[in-house]
Simulated scan of single mutants.
Amino acid sequence: MVGALVPESSHTEAGAWVSTAYNLGAALGTACGGVLADRSGPPSAFGVAAGLLAAVTALGALRALSRRNPTTALKAPSGDGVTR
C-alpha cells in the first residue's frame, strides 16, 4: 500500500517509517498492557485490548465505506456477468 502512495524514489524511506510506526506501536502496546495487567489483572488488559481492536476496526470500516463511490457500488453488472 505504501508503494502506491509515495513516489518510487521514496519507497525505502516510506517503508522505514511504516516499520518504525509498527515497532513503536508494539512497544507502547506491550508497555501499557503490562501496566494495566499489573494494576487491574489480565482480564482487564484483554478487555481493553479487545475494545481498542473493535474500535479501530469499526473506524477503518467506516472510513473505507465513506471513500467508496456509491454510484459505482450500486450499478448492475453489464454484459454476461463474467469477470475477465
Rank of each mutant, 00 (worst) to 15 (best):
C32Y: 13
P43N: 05
S44L: 02
L53G: 03
G41E: 04
L53W: 05
G29H: 12
R39F: 14
R39H: 11
G34N: 02
L53R: 06
A37Q: 09
S40C: 15
V48D: 14
L28Q: 12
A45S: 04
A54E: 00
D38M: 07
S44W: 14
R39T: 15
G41C: 02
P42W: 15
V35H: 14
G29S: 13
G41I: 08
T30C: 05
G29C: 15
A37L: 02
A45Q: 05
V48L: 04
L52R: 00
G34Q: 01
A49S: 06
F46Y: 07
G33P: 12
S44F: 12
P43A: 03
D38T: 07
A49D: 15
V48N: 15
L28A: 14
G34H: 01
L28F: 14
G29P: 01
A31H: 09
S40M: 13
L53Y: 09
P43V: 00
A27T: 15
C32A: 15
D38N: 08
G41P: 00
A55R: 04
S44N: 01
P43D: 02
A27E: 12
P42E: 12
A49I: 04
P43M: 02
L52C: 06
S44P: 05
S40G: 07
G33M: 11
A27K: 10
V35W: 14
L53K: 01
G29A: 12
V56W: 00
T57M: 11
G51C: 13
G34V: 05
F46H: 03
A31E: 03
A37I: 01
S44R: 06
G47I: 07
A27H: 10
F46K: 04
L52G: 04
A27V: 12
T57N: 09
V35I: 14
V56C: 06
G29Q: 12
D38V: 03
G47F: 03
T30R: 08
S40A: 15
L53E: 14
V35D: 12
G47K: 05
S40E: 06
V48C: 01
G47R: 01
P43K: 15
F46M: 02
G33T: 07
A49T: 10
G33Y: 06
G33I: 02
T30Y: 01
A50N: 04
S40R: 15
G51I: 09
A31V: 10
A49Y: 03
L36R: 09
L28V: 13
P43R: 12
A37N: 08
A49L: 10
G51P: 08
S44D: 09
G47M: 02
A37P: 09
L53T: 11
S44V: 04
P42H: 03
V35E: 14
R39E: 15
G51T: 03
G29W: 11
L52V: 07
D38G: 01
S44M: 08
V56L: 09
G33D: 08
L53V: 06
